[in-house]
Each structure stands twice: as C-alpha cells, then as structure tokens.
Design a protein around this nucleic acid. Sequence first.
DNA 1: GTCGTCTTGCTAAATTAATGGCAAGTTATG
DNA 2: CATAACTTGCCATTAATTTAGCAAGACGAC
Lengths: 107, 107
Amino acid sequence: MATFGEFLRNERIKKGLTQSDFGQIFGIIMTDMSKIENGHKKFPPANLEKLAEFLEMDFAKVKNLFVAEILVEKAHKYKCSDDVFSVAESQSKYIKEKNVKQAVMKF
Amino acid sequence: MATFGEFLRNERIKKGLTQSDFGQIFGIIMTDMSKIENGHKKFPPANLEKLAEFLEMDFAKVKNLFVAEILVEKAHKYKCSDDVFSVAESQSKYIKEKNVKQAVMKF
DNA sequence: GTCGTCTTGCTAAATTAATGGCAAGTTATG
DNA sequence: CATAACTTGCCATTAATTTAGCAAGACGAC
C-alpha cells in the first residue's frame, strides 16, 4: 500500500511518461504534478474519473486511494492512533444502519 | 458503536445532567450542546482532554470517537464505500514505516 | 397554558485550507 | 557544462469550512 502520490508516480512511470506529459492529460503543469506526487498538493478531484479511465482502473478504487490520503492527513493532524480508522468504519456502518431504519419508519 | 454526539448524549444522561448543565462545564451554551449532540456542530477540540477527565475515560478513546466522526463526514462527502477506512489505515501504517526508514537512513 | 428542555434555521464574521504561478534549486545524464 | 526532469519555497488570492449568536418552534410534564 502506497500513498496516492506514489501510486500516481508508479502508474505514470509504468506508462513511460514524464510529469509534464502525464499532467498535460489532466491540465496540470509539471510543477504541480511534482507536488501532487509528493503529497504537497491534491490531485483535482473533478479529474478522478478521467484518471481512472486513463489508468483503466475501477473508479471507486482510485477514489478510495485519493480520499484515504485525506483521512490520513486528518488523523495525523489530531495525532490519533491508527485505531481511529476502524472506529470510523464502525461509526459509518452505524450511521448507515440508522438511516435505513429511519427511512423504513417513514412508511 | 455510536456517533460522537450520541456518545456525549448518553454520557450526559447517565450523569443526569441537562444540556445546559453539561455545557456549562465546558463553556458551551445549551443550543450549541444540542447541535453538537445532533452532529450539526463540532465539540471544541481544545476541550477534549477536559471532557475525557470529566467522563473518567481514556483521552485517546474520546479523541478517536471525535476524530472518527470527522473522517466519516469526509468519506461520505466523497461518497466512498466503507472500504476507504481500511485503505486509510494501510496508508497510515505505510507512511509511518517509511518515516522510520528515512529516520534510520539519516544516521 | 406555561415551564423546562431541546431542536433547528439563518446569516455575518472568522478561521482554515487550497490554488496558481513564478523563481530558484537539485539530480542525473550525455 | 548543458539539458531534461524533477523538487521546493513562497505568497497573494480564492474557496471552503467553522463559528457565534439570535430567533423561533417543538415536545412533554405538570
């Protein structure tokens, strides 16, 4: 498992492209591609779908990699242990269940 | 597993306090306590430690509940499946490992 | 009805985060 | 050294998120 930036770099190199070439596809200049690969800047979310197409990967997987990096940043900002992610998963499931129940109640 | 807001509400009710009473301890007015319990507002992070003391709970656990809610919000904003949390956990571990290796390399 | 408790909506202000673009510097290679 | 590829720092602008505070409404108990 790598960061989103490293993932991008790997895929780019697999295809034998420079940051400049690769960026051009998504309208990103080279210096920004560098920042993105090194985690100093975010890949533009609006281009994630196009990115998935280009890499011939499942959009959801690409998006997960992207969003995961944002979550990791947040967790580190608050100096949380990695437990926080499974707590979050439980919470998310709990909320979804709750929403289902409420939706059912409406009928 | 409940949301942070529900957790707060449960603890408050266990102690037989109103939102007004409970809020006063942390300098939060009643209407804000309501919003916090219902997830429309964030509990002030600077008070998390005090909260843990008051509830006689481990600070890290309270913080995890708090931060998890933030992560869940982000994940939902991007309409991610719950897989994203385990991806994030892997990424986080990966980054920590990488940092260790780099730290070692310095010497 | 009225009191206490709680919920919600709204908006302006403030805080925080993200972005774009340029400039300077590194590294590897011929 | 010259070039291509890449990295980083800085800063002004913009965008996004949070917050505070007030007002009004809901709900149950008495």
